[in-house]
């Protein structure tokens, strides 16, 4: 029972972290149309910074475990140890959840803003946006940096709460998983990023962990996992190219149309020439 709950909370942490990765990539690709194939770089950078920072005692993940462990060993009988471990797990999950929620709010606020609209215009047609006075380079740069900050935050959480980082284990496949999550879930919609993270990063990535390892081919399981995810991506692109939850149509509050401004009626002469 305790093990299962612990496992679920670990999955929950993974889910939150992948959500944040996917939000970051969504800002870059889904909003602005930037093809970022180096997601992993910024995960690793975040992870590295967190790793360096946690050389001191201020690592929250282990800190929580440390405090709870202290309480457990001092004050509680061993029966309660499992419960305390669980509590630690859920606190970690809660923290990740809160950070993810903040990222969600920020990402959505950007999407709905004027800035988000300009990003989408650039995604749709860079030259036209440029011809309408948008500093496309600066906007794309901002999108890139913002996305990378998100991914970096995900990287930090990975180090704090998963506490396992082997640089060799972070290859192109991590980038691939985030991309797959976004494509399957739906670009340009953060809900899509969430759905995609759940389907790809949690279900597929984790379910395949239960496949028995074959000693002769130690990498077989991870290869099968990548193949499954690749298959899922292809199926999505084939049958539902917009993703499970595609981008939603922008809705504006309805401005009542004044009757005198029907077609062929003059516009208000506000701008005099050469002003």
């Amino acid at each position: 029972m305790g093990i299962i709950l612990g496992y679920i909370s670990t999955l929950g942490v993974y889910f939150c972290i992948y959500n944040i990765f996917a939000f970051g990539l969504n800002i870059q690709f889904g909003y602005t149309g930037i093809l970022d194939f180096t997601v992993i770089t910024f995960m690793a950078m975040g992870g590295y910074m967190a790793g360096v920072a946690s050389l001191g005692p201020e690592q929250p993940g282990s800190g929580i475990y440390y405090v709870l462990g202290l309480i457990a060993s001092r004050r509680l009988r061993s029966d309660y140890l499992a419960i305390v471990t669980l509590a630690a797990g859920s606190i970690v999950l809660g923290l990740c959840g809160v950070i993810m929620a903040i990222c969600w709010l920020v990402a959505n606020r950007i999407y709905r803003s004027t800035f988000g609209r300009t990003m989408r215009a650039i995604r749709e047609d860079l030259d036209v946006a440029e011809a309408y006075g948008k500093h496309t380079f600066r906007v794309r740069m901002t999108a890139m940096v913002t996305g990378c900050i998100f991914v970096g935050i995900g990287g930090v959480l990975t180090i704090w709460f998963i506490t396992a980082l082997a640089p060799a284990g972070w290859g192109t496949s991590e980038t691939f998983v985030v991309w797959a999550a976004l494509i399957v879930g739906g670009c340009g919609n953060n809900l899509g990023a969430v759905v995609g993270s759940f389907l790809v990063a949690v279900l597929f990535n984790e379910a395949t962990r239960f496949l028995p390892a074959i000693p002769a081919f130690p990498s077989l399981v991870s290869e099968i996992r990548n193949m499954c995810i690749g298959g899922l991506v292809i199926l999505t692109l084939w049958f539902r190219p917009q993703g499970v939850v595609g981008e939603r149509k922008a809705r504006f509050f309805e401005v009542p149309l004044r009757t005198e401004s029907r077609e062929q009626v003059r516009v208000p002469a506000v701008v005099a020439s050469g002003s």
């Binding site: 920020v106 606020r109 950007i110 803003s113 004027t114 800035f115 988000g116 609209r117 300009t118 989408r120 215009a121 749709e124 047609d125 030259d127 036209v128 946006a129 309408y132 006075g133 948008k134 906007v139 901002t142 913002t146 981008e247 149509k249 922008a250 504006f252």
Partner: peptide, 29 residues
């Protein structure tokens, strides 16, 4: 014609005004 295809007609127009205050990330946040 080069409209922004996956944006609504109204959105296509809303992109055009120049120097919008909401085009700065710090203002948005």
């Amino acid at each position: 014609s080069r409209e922004y295809p996956a944006m609504t007609v109204l959105e296509n127009l809303m992109v055009s005004p120049q120097r919008q205050a909401g085009e700065k990330l710090s203002t948005v946040l």
